[in-house]
Every structure is written in C-alpha cells, then in structure tokens.
C-alpha cells in the first residue's frame, strides 16, 4: 500500500540491563535483525554510563569516532539511520552528577535545557528528526498537578523545543501510563501550554490505552500535534489507578502488586489486544501522517521474535511492503 508512513523499530527491548547490549557485535545482530525485517531506521533510548554505549552522544562518539563513524556503523548493517531518540530528563545521569530534576520545578529548567543541547546537536548531526521526551515524572512520586504545574511543565518544553529547533530537531512529548500528566484532559492542557511550532506529541498506542485514552480518537482529535508514534499493543488497561501505587514502575508494570500483571506490552496482532491497530493506522493514513511510526516491543519477550512477529503483522495485516 502506498502511503506517507515511515517505519522504524525501537532498540530499547534489547537493552535490558547495563551490560547486556554493549558489545558491538550484539548491537550489529539487533540492527541486522531490524534490517532483515524491513526496518531501516531505529530509535535509540538515552541512558547513562560507559556501558550504555548507544545512550549518550559523547559515549556514542567515543565508540565510533563521531557522528559519521556512527552512521558507518549503522550502514554496515544496512540500517540507514536513526528516526528518533527517547530521553527522560527526570532520569538521573552519572554524567550530570546523578541530579534529580523535575520539569514541574522551574529551578530545574535551565539545567534541563542545557542537558538537552548535546542530544539535539548529536541528533542533528546524524540526521535524526525527533527527540522524544518524557514530559513529566511518575504520578506516584509527586503531589497531584496543581493549576500552575502544567503551565510550568509546558514552559520547559517550549524552551527545549527552541533549542532543538535551532539544531533542526523536533521535540515530541511522549505519553506514558505512569505519568503525572495522565488524563486526556491533562494531556490536552499540556499541549495547549506548548507552542505547536516547537513541541509535538509522541502518541504511544499501548501507553494511552493502558491510561484509559483511546488512541484512535485521540489521534483524530489532535492530528495536527502528533509528530511521532510508538506502535505497540497491550492486553490490559489500568482500570484501578494502579499507576498511583508507590513504586508503580515495578509494582504495576512488573507485577509486584495490584493485579500482579507481569507483562503489559505485546506485539501487534496479539490475542486479546486492546489497541485497534488497523483502525489506528487507517487513521494515520487518512491524515497523511508525515512522521515516523516506531514499532516497539518494550520488554515484552524475546526481542528478535517480537520484531519478526511485528514485521509479519505490518506486511500481512497492514499492507506495508517490506523494503
């Protein structure tokens, strides 16, 4: 099917702890797997430390001699480039003194903008279009959003968006099901608080569904703001506000408490999937969505197996020709 959609694959599922996805040959195998399945662009995820050698610009450059060397590394695996990179400024990094920063704290804003600069510059140098960011921390770690908080969060992303735009890179706010910016109304407020020329929205189909927001309807209502997509499925919605449980990253998403669900994210076409993937992609096509669609497995199982099943779904259920 001929359309505007551009497909990429997220590498985060291969990187399950600091020392398992470090050796270049292991990374080549993942890249070749993506390439053989028709995904010629990949999404990186920010990290910290010398082992996370695809996670920070300066570490990537140390490993590959610079942006051109890194692109050579990708091209050697028939991967053409990097669609996007995910970055959470609230995730402490060794390189920044393990500082805890919050986008709802204006005192942290200058440091967050400064942290974003190397990412924006590096992504621009390798021809990457989107810096995908976590706009706010987990809900359980902070008091409920007050009237001014969304405006404050919007301010820092406008500032990051300005820095990134100057480098030629877009910024997309990624919704996740644990976020303090949680409801459709709160997401709408955040989008209203940001400049559409500088800040877009990264729509994650599974995360929205878990959070109780229909991704098809949400996209139809905000198509002009959606500049990035993560496509994956889930079998569960967070019907009991488990995202508010202390330690929701493990108590909810790893099944430590609540309903004890150990796996939330699934491949496209999974039995019992709650995301209407076909309707969602049809809506993207109706709107001539111009951004990247990044297929993501997100620690759902065997990385290569899930990439293969996702590719099969694209080719046989969504009419995507394998390039």
């Amino acid at each position: 099917m001929k359309d505007t959609l551009r497909w990429a694959y997220a590498l985060n599922q291969w990187n399950i702890r600091m020392d398992v996805f470090v050796r270049h040959e292991d990374q080549r195998r993942a890249l070749k797997t993506c390439s053989a399945l028709g995904f010629h662009h990949v999404e990186l995820a920010a990290g910290t430390g010398r082992w996370d050698n695809l996670g920070r610009p300066e570490v990537i450059e140390l490993n590959h001699g610079g942006p051109a060397g890194f692109l050579d590394f990708l091209h050697g695996c028939s991967v053409h480039g990097v669609s996007s990179m995910y970055w959470d400024p609230g995730q402490p990094a060794e390189e920044e003194g393990w500082a805890f920063r919050s986008t709802r704290n204006r005192d942290d804003h200058a440091a967050i903008v400064e942290s974003a600069k190397p990412f924006a510059d590096f992504l621009a140098a390798i021809g990457t279009e989107q810096l995908v960011v976590r706009p706010a921390g987990s809900a359980w770690l902070q008091p409920p959003l007050g009237a001014d908080d969304v405006k404050t969060i919007g301010e820092v992303w406008n500032a990051v968006g300005k820095v990134a735009a100057a480098a030629g890179v877009g910024v997309a706010l990624h919704y996740d099901c644990l976020s303090a910016v949680h409801s459709a109304d709160e997401v709408g407020q955040l989008l209203a608080a940001t400049d559409p020329a500088l800040v877009g929205f990264a729509l994650d189909t599974a995360e929205l569904t878990i959070g109780g927001i229909d991704p098809v309807a949400f996209y139809a209502g905000h198509a002009d703001r959606v500049t990035h997509v993560h496509l994956k499925d889930t079998r569960y919605a967070d019907t009991g506000e488990e995202y508010r449980m202390p330690g929701a990253e493990t108590t909810m998403l790893r099944g430590g408490a609540g309903r004890r669900i150990e796996r939330w994210f699934f491949e496209l076409g999974t039995e019992g999937g709650l995301v209407d993937v076909k309707a969602f992609v049809a809506t993207l096509r109706e709107h001539d969505y111009p951004g990247w669609v990044v297929v993501e497995s997100d620690h759902g199982g065997n990385p290569a197996e899930l990439a293969m099943l996702n590719s099969w779904y694209l080719q046989h259920e969504l009419g995507v020709a394998k390039s």
Binding site: T33, A36, S78, A304, M308
Partner: peptide, 16 residues
Amino acid sequence: GDYAESTAVARWHAVN
C-alpha cells in the same frame, strides 16, 4: 543462542 535472531541474521546475510 537464539533461533529467531540467528534466522534474521542469516537472512540479512542472504539479502545483503
């Protein structure tokens, strides 16, 4: 080792 990954890498070699 992993069959899925080995299969994808082998196929990559065939194509490329």
